[in-house]
Amino acid sequence: MLENVKHVVLVLSGKGGVGKSSVTVQLALTLARAGKRVGVLDIDLTGPNIPRMFNVEEKKVHQAPGGWIPVKVGDTNSTNGGSIECMSLGFLLRDRGDSVVWRGPKKTAMVKQFLTDVLWKDIDYLLVDTPPGTSDEHISLAEQLRSVSTDGAVIVTTPQAISTADVRKELNFCKKVGLDILGVVENMSGFVCPHCSTCTNVFSSGGGAVMAEQFGVDFFGAVPIDPALNLMLERQKETTDGVELLERYGESKLCPVFVGIVEKLLAKTEKVVGNGSG
C-alpha cells in the first residue's frame, strides 16, 4: 500500500467548514511550486470539494490493470518538475448533485479502497483531505495507515472558541491513535476590508496559536481570509488566458503565507524519516 509515496500528510479538523480542503489545495499548490510531485486524496465521501477547487469536476477516473489512475491537475508540469494529481469520490458520481448516503461500513470500505487501489506514481507528498469529526473515516484511515510510516497530521482550525473546542477533540483523537501532529494552521484569521484596509477579526483571532501552545504542538501560521482565492479557484473555467493554476497562485496574497507554512512542513518531514521527536 502506498509504495510509491514518500510522505503521507493528513489534513484534519474536528470542525467542518474551517478550510481543510482549501488548506489542502494551497499546500498542494505550494509544494508543487517548490518542485514536489503531490498527490491529493479526498476522503470526504459525503462532501467532496477537491475536484471543484482544482477545476477537474468533469474529469473521470480511469481503471487500469492494478487500480485507479488519479486525475491530473493542469496539463503541464511546472518548470521545476512539480505536479498535482488527485483522487476523490466526486469523480465517481454520475451527477455532481448526487448524494452519497452511506453508513459506516461502506465508508470504511471506500477509504480502504482509496488507500490501496489508487496507482500513485512516484509521489513526494500525499495529502489526505478528511471530513470533519472523529468517526468512521478517521478510524479507518488511522487503522489502514498503521502499516505505513505516516508523517503526521496538519490540523486546521478557525480562531473562534466554537471551532477550537471541536479541534481539541481532534487533537486528542490524534494522541489516542498515535498520530504525530506536525502543526496547527489557523485559517480565516482576520479579514482586510478592501475599502478601508482595516483588518477585522471576523472569527476572532489567536485561538489556533493558543490551542497549539496548550497542547504543546507547533503552530504553522495564521492564514487571513482572502475572498480573491475563492474567486480565483471558482473562475478557473472562465479564464482562458492559458495561465495554469500553479502559476496563477503565485500572484495570490496567500501564497507567501503558505510558502512559510510549507517551509515548516518540509523542515519537519524531510529531516529523518520516522523520527518521533520535535
Binding site: C193, P227, L231
Partner: peptide, 18 residues
C-alpha cells in the same frame, strides 16, 4: 456579505459565484 465595522463598506467574503 460582510459589513466592515470601520467604514461600513460591504464586501463578499464568501462570494456567490453561482
Amino acid at each position: 456579505g460582510f459589513v466592515c465595522p470601520n467604514c461600513e463598506g460591504e464586501s463578499q467574503i464568501f462570494h456567490a459565484t453561482t
